[in-house]
Design a protein around this nucleic acid. Structure first.
Lengths: 310, 310
DNA sequence: TCATTCATGAAGCGACGCTACAACGTTAGC
DNA sequence: GCTAACGTTGTAGCGTCGCTTCATGAATGA
């Protein structure tokens, strides 16, 4: 007398988790890749869940699939279930004093330099069982949420506000609020100033960041008399930006914590007055992953590191 | 490349639920009976969970078993998981407009008469898919919590307070607060009074309830000058109590809502002054069962019925 | 039109979780 | 102190589930 696959819980929790992955990754194949199965297995799991519940959860749309309203509803519930399981496991590990496991963290390059580099030795001291899988990914703001599917923690930055947990359905941890300064070459006409205002920068050539990048939203705010800053080059990497500033090719916006690196390259950072320019640095995580004991440890150390910087 | 039994969630949720049942039922055999499996299957499930997690969760104690601290911790987590699953299923059923299933409700006899009898037709009108499995069990106060393992809703009464959800870890729904009156035969010397005080009842023979029963805690409060009421007979069923009162064998405490039934048997109910005598009627449920859509419907109707009575 | 990309179906197979049966340890009764 | 009853645990066997492999169909883009 075997109940079949529905277990004691009334709903097959593993299949529910599969549905949730489908909701977040968007295609059967993506789920299959992420969970080390064949697309056929994933498809069969969804079909079985539909059969168990007697409802259509997924419909074909073009070459791919789309969740029905019922499917999306269940996928949301699956998040809560995953959270409860992760929380249970976390409490268990804390109880045993055996917090371990791999935590995948990704960050934008300068964030990796500032935060992840100091993280490694400190974590090794505080939680030796935790191993880190680090990477640097320069993501546009709208890509951050998607990246949480493949990483436990995603460090991002924004010139606007910290993302709203309610709208993103993600666990958000603010880490830093950092002003943006104007970077000029040591022999620049403004280099001796203690601070600059937008008016001082009219007609300066700018070294910017790629279109769509967080900082790029900020430059138009420096317009004076309807004339927005003129961007002559766009680079992703702060080191490259700094090098071009040092070479006298233009000025740039750089976070204040970059000062030491900038000065080492012969570049001065001047506070910017008249405009509230700053960036927020934060960590994003799927709610269930945020419950993991190892992830919480990493987050705690990250907050320490950030607090010491600021 | 099959992960084995740990699924996508990191912990086998079905085995976790089995551990929880063990925590609440106390013995492998009891869990086996409740889940329609052999004791061997349950024992193997626990052992497999211990192997997966690398920890001892259960130790033998005498003829039975006892959970370790780690096991109890995990069992608590299992409740949260079960809640999340039940909540998900409930939302899904509400969404489909298909709230159905069997709800097992048990109540003390007079509660069954007052609350469960009107419940049946009203529920049939409001939620036709829900079927009720009703029973009447006269449980001592300390047995109520245990009964939630076998029933979705357990109606209980207490002369003290409504149980505390935090300490019982159960979902508690207060239904009624009902005064207790003194029942006397229609030809009793006090029958014409509008109310009575404890002093009026000195030396009266009492028809009580079995020792350990909720009402029994109340009689000593009626002591006057150190002389507690003298109980000559003890009966469980209010009808029987009423019959003996009608026959002039003594007086009794009966809930005010019993008035109609009492008067039909030739018994008057007199308000009791000078003592705050009353009983609380409430419904208990395991937190996960309280999340079920069908159970919530039944609870809602029960609250309506209770509100109309009071 | 053809190649590519996804999703799905059928067949086969390994693993898991169950039952049945037996063994063992503990408790309680005589 | 012996024995019977109870409860848990181990072993063997078997059914079912969920996976992979392979093949098919349907939509997209060059």
């Amino acid at each position: 007398m075997n109940d079949g696959s529905m277990g004691v819980m009334g709903i097959d929790v593993d299949k529910l988790a599969t549905l949730r992955e489908l909701a977040e990754r968007g295609s059967i194949t993506a789920v299959a890749d992420a969970t080390y199965r064949t697309p056929s297995a994933v498809s069969q799991a969804i079909k079985a869940l539909e059969r168990d519940l007697g409802a259509v959860l997924v419909v074909r749309e073009g070459r791919g699939v789309r969740l029905t309203d019922a499917g999306a509803l269940l996928a949301e519930g699956a998040v809560e279930v995953a959270e409860a399981v992760a929380r249970t496991r976390a409490r268990f590990e804390e109880f045993r004093g055996d917090v371990s496991g791999e935590v995948a963290v990704t960050a934008f390059p300068s964030g990796a330099e500032m935060l992840l580099a100091p993280l490694l030795p400190r974590l090794a001291a505080e939680a030796p069982g935790v191993t880190l899988r680090l990477s640097d990914l320069d993501l546009a703001e709208y890509e951050l949420a998607a990246a949480t599917a493949d990483h436990d923690l995603v460090l991002g930055h924004s010139v606007l506000a910290v993302p709203d947990p309610a709208t993103t359905r993600l666990h958000v941890t603010p880490l830093l609020r950092e002003p943006l300064d104007v970077a000029v070459a040591a022999d620049h006409r403004l280099a001796a100033r203690d601070a600059v205002r937008p008016e001082d920068l009219v007609d300066e050539p700018w070294i910017g960041v790629p279109v769509g990048h967080p900082f790029d939203l900020l430059l138009p705010m420096l317009a004076v008399g309807g004339r927005p800053p003129r961007v002559v080059q766009r680079f992703l990497d702060n080191h490259v930006v700094t090098a071009f500033v040092a070479a006298g090719q233009g000025v740039a916006l750089l976070p204040r914590l970059w000062r030491r690196a900038a000065e080492a390259q012969g570049v001065r950072l001047l506070p910017l007055e008249g405009v509230r320019a700053g960036r927020h640095v934060f960590a994003l995580a799927r709610p269930d992953r945020a419950e993991r004991a190892a992830v919480r440890r990493v987050l705690a150390v990250l907050e320490d590191v950030a607090a010491e910087l600021g």
